[in-house]
Design a binder for these strands. Sequence first.
DNA 1: TCTGCATGAGAAAACGGTTTTCTAGGAGGG
DNA 2: CCCTCCTAGAAAACCGTTTTCTCATGCAGA
Lengths: 347, 347
Amino acid sequence: MSVGGGRVRIYDVASRAGVSVATASKALNDTGRMTEETRLRVKTAARELGFRPNAMARGLIQRRSFTIGLLTNDSYGRFTLPVMAGISEALVDQGVSVFLCGIEDDPALGRVHLDAMLDKQVDGIIASGKRIDRKLPVDLSNLPVPVVYAFTEGHAGAVTLVSDDFQGSVEAVEHLMALGRKRIVHVTGPDSFASVKERTRAYRSAIGGEGVVLHGAWSEHWGHEAVERLWGQGEAPDGIFCGNDQIARGVVDALRERGVQVPADVSVVGFDNWEIVAGQTRPPLTSVDMNLKAIGREAGRLVLELAEGKPVEPGVRKLPCQLVIRESCGGNAAVTERRGGILVPAD
Amino acid sequence: MSVGGGRVRIYDVASRAGVSVATASKALNDTGRMTEETRLRVKTAARELGFRPNAMARGLIQRRSFTIGLLTNDSYGRFTLPVMAGISEALVDQGVSVFLCGIEDDPALGRVHLDAMLDKQVDGIIASGKRIDRKLPVDLSNLPVPVVYAFTEGHAGAVTLVSDDFQGSVEAVEHLMALGRKRIVHVTGPDSFASVKERTRAYRSAIGGEGVVLHGAWSEHWGHEAVERLWGQGEAPDGIFCGNDQIARGVVDALRERGVQVPADVSVVGFDNWEIVAGQTRPPLTSVDMNLKAIGREAGRLVLELAEGKPVEPGVRKLPCQLVIRESCGGNAAVTERRGGILVPAD
DNA sequence: TCTGCATGAGAAAACGGTTTTCTAGGAGGG
DNA sequence: CCCTCCTAGAAAACCGTTTTCTCATGCAGA
């Protein structure tokens, strides 16, 4: 009961239950020794009064704020939001809340946000970004709280979480091969990106050769252009593994305009599984999902363990990607779908 | 100096400066009375030690946490992220940090997050969502802290901020008319949405008649289908005002496939100015920007004023939209561009 | 010389909890 | 009957600030 102004203190609970504040505290936290009857009486009183402990007072003495900070330069949120969702999911039932701080690429802004979070005694910090081979513009290497990096480059000796792009890419290419595609090419982003290198390496490993790799921008426009090039010379491919969904969408659109059937003539796979792109392409794109939410969950779990003093092995951890099948590849491979946010094989 | 573990307390500052904690506190906060020399000595000591006050201790006594909560059910972040950026921008130099809580449409989850935030003594709450005519699945009407609604429906007597869709839509349609378009139609989303009704009302007001309004899903597919219908009967339009960018993209793609030139034959305007859609369309879409970041800034400012006890007039406030010109309309109207995140006319 | 008052600075009391230490009373043993 | 041990619960200390209250001191005016 009692929606009341929230101003009920443990003192009120104690006096209603006819015990001291100390006893009330112990009763509510299931610590200390007392008759079960007393404990119950206190708990009942607390419930009736709608008592909720003041987290600041509690945190002050426990030296814990039940708060963590998420620092990111991914202002668009493409990568950070799913990570955030995962973190939140992992921490909410521990009573931990998350400060989200977008710092663009501004070191001064980063410093300001970082200081604000440290002042608030965050239990830990998770750093996230928009590419895994760039550091945030703020140094997190000597903080009084633990730091976990998720989808951004961390300092030496840190705990870092990234997706296993190699595994994901291999699955994508093998999927194409399983469908009988023989001439598979790779159209991807600028090779200055570590993820581009990794996905390219996987592509070559899967097809067992050099293959054909085209680098360009991360844009639909580049997808179009790549098709121009590929269909303007020699034997056209029958399978295209794209570095991201935007490129893939450009590729699919260009093929349609050219009269090439997708997936009948050519199978196309994207990367990122960005719903807004992959889902709206005609036909919808089969794409590699980096499971960013899982990365977030893991990051949340780990930063909390570190905050509680548990030992965590430092280093880079790769979490598996998942191929999400839509219609751009054809064939009768097992279809997967999203169910309750988790990727599962369809029945 | 002193990156040191952050464990420096005001006590340390006081003893280094040779004063009591009370004096140290007053010196640092520019309150109380003391010689300028003493004040300076304390401040110097604080700087040398790298002292940063513990926000929990400070908040406990001041009954302020310098923290606000952002509650949203917009898990995709399309609307909430820009709002969040605005809030953060408005509050960061006041030392206020923001808890971001995604609650989907789950009342229980909403309750959990809300309680967690209240326990942490947030100074205020901003509620945000993905449509302005739906409430969050959690009741915020009798909270011990102020609430501001940004881009979601609030309770009676609350402070609510939304974009002025009417004004934005009128500008869009008038833009088409200024370009000489005579047969302007409106292709939009389901008319169960308040924003659809509002934009339709504006469309009719601007053209001064009933016009042609087609309702469908918020999807590219519907944009295609609408073009089929429009070109399958009677005189084809020469201007299309779309309810969102996805529909507009579908429209533009369908027109191109049909051999209709955009913008030469038909001008198209979108709504939302969602970069990933509007910018990648061929040609890029002229679109109405709802200035969500400005809404966020205003929400941040207002919730803080309320938290400080200042009076704020309740009611719904509409903030102006801005037409962002790209290439889908043609003509030589003044071009605008984004500069540093702010929309400005190009020189 | 004494009173009055402004001034600088310290001591102590909050804030709202948790944790440690202390105490009174009952049970059990010799 | 006395001593010890155990237990439930109270009392006190503490977390790191801010704020209020108190107290010297020095100087001006009577």
